[in-house]
Amino acid sequence: MSFKMLTSTQRTLDDAEELVEYYYRRIKVFIPTIAKICLLSTFIEDSLRMYIYFSAQYYFFARRFYGWFSTFYIVFNLIVQMGAVLLILIKKKRLFAISSLFVVIFLQCIMYSPLYSWRFFGKSAALCGCLILLLVDARVTTSNKDEFAGLPDMGFDKPKSLMLLVGRIMTIFIFFTLLHSNMSYFKWFLTTINFALILSVAAGISAKLSAFILVLILSIENVSMNNFWSVPEWMSDYVRYDFFLTLSVIGGLLFIVSHGAGANRIT
């Protein structure tokens, strides 16, 4: 009986994945662009915030570093993020651009260390996972193979599958940051469903289907719960950060919908 149930469940999942694949083929030409814009939105928002709130950022860093260094870091952060985003969108020097964004995340972990916590670590790790998924897409779609000559070549499809695995696992960290002790029962219920789906994505079990469902759920949750445009001003920075970070994770999940789980998955 249990074997028949497992077989029936697997058949249902396969049918659902085929349905997702059918509709995906109809809009697949738009998915990579949408995924890139969603994923890069965090860096666009952060660089714009650096520009708009330059003085506030300067005084925050000046309490710990020399004034000239604070100015240099803010300008460096702004230029590198916007430059990297532009290079990725026009598909030029993408390995260099994505590597630059990894450096930005690393430096932010140092510069914002007074605010550092396990939640900050989880968000940074999830963002790195999304960048790895972006790197997979760039590596697959590039017409200039020499651009990615620095990446290891371990045989057909192995680098892609390995990077997909690492990216999927690192994306899990975002869901640990969403846990709060004072959440409502309904929020706990949604978080449990999301966590089950992201574990399925990480393990590669019906990854495309799970990622597609997560995109739909997170999109609705993001607009309804991270509505920074309608919260008090003192909360808006924190809520806006979560909004754009979730948008980046949605972008990473769209890349999984596009490329699947790769060879490293549980079947």
Rank of each mutant, 00 (worst) to 15 (best):
S258W: 02
G251L: 01
S210C: 07
V85W: 09
T191L: 15
F72H: 09
M163C: 05
F176V: 14
N144A: 11
V223K: 09
W68V: 11
G67R: 07
R64M: 12
T246L: 01
W234S: 08
W188M: 15
S206H: 02
K187H: 10
M163K: 02
S2G: 15
N264F: 15
E221P: 10
I27P: 06
K158N: 07
F212W: 02
F54Q: 06
A203I: 11
V104P: 08
F156A: 14
A126R: 04
A149N: 12
F175C: 01
V257C: 07
G251Q: 01
E45P: 00
S47R: 04
C109Q: 14
L127W: 11
L245P: 01
C38V: 04
A126I: 05
T191I: 15
T192A: 03
D153S: 06
L254R: 02
L115F: 13
I198N: 02
V223R: 00
M163Y: 07
A261L: 00
G129A: 05
P232L: 03
M154P: 11
I217A: 11
S224D: 07
F244E: 10
V215N: 03
F96G: 08
I172F: 14
L19A: 10
L218K: 06
L133E: 12
Y22K: 14
L115Q: 11
F195W: 03
F72D: 01
